[in-house]
Amino acid sequence: MTATEILFWFLSALALFSALMVLISKNPVHSVLWLIVVFFAISGHYILLNAQFLAIVNLIVYAGAIMVLFLFVIMLMNLNNASEPQRNSLIKLAGVVAGCLLLMVMVSAVRSAGEISHSQATSDGGIGLIENLGTVLFTQYVVPFEISSVLFLSAMVGAVVIGKK
């Protein structure tokens, strides 16, 4: 087993374990912290795919900014086990069925995609490096890129307007 494989299996196990812990943890603050571990594991996968830029942006945006705000809100609301609403068993059953269906869709998608992606994974895959990503974003996909940035701007303005009320 090469170092890459060892790292891959370690990161995958870590990602799955901490994703499970996000769901299982009783304390919402623990859930948020486990979610941060998930983001770290996924960033590790990006680095294995030679996409350092994506890895670091994933950390800056998700672990460094969004999860801090999550933690902020949860700390201020001071949630605990008692205040969590108890749902009835019918809704729980529906949740289980929906989750299983989603799992099936995902498994079938991965199975059919397995053949195609194999050839790409073995190439050097420099698309995640910042030069290549920037070139592609600002030439091939410049219109969707700009439109999404306008969307972000309008969301920010909207948040400020709601906050001012």
């Binding site: 941060i36 950390l59 800056i60 672990a63 460094g64 900014a65 801090v68 933690l71």
Partner: peptide
Amino acid sequence: AVVSLGVY
């Protein structure tokens, strides 16, 4: 990225 993690 490390600076932004320093908050935790």
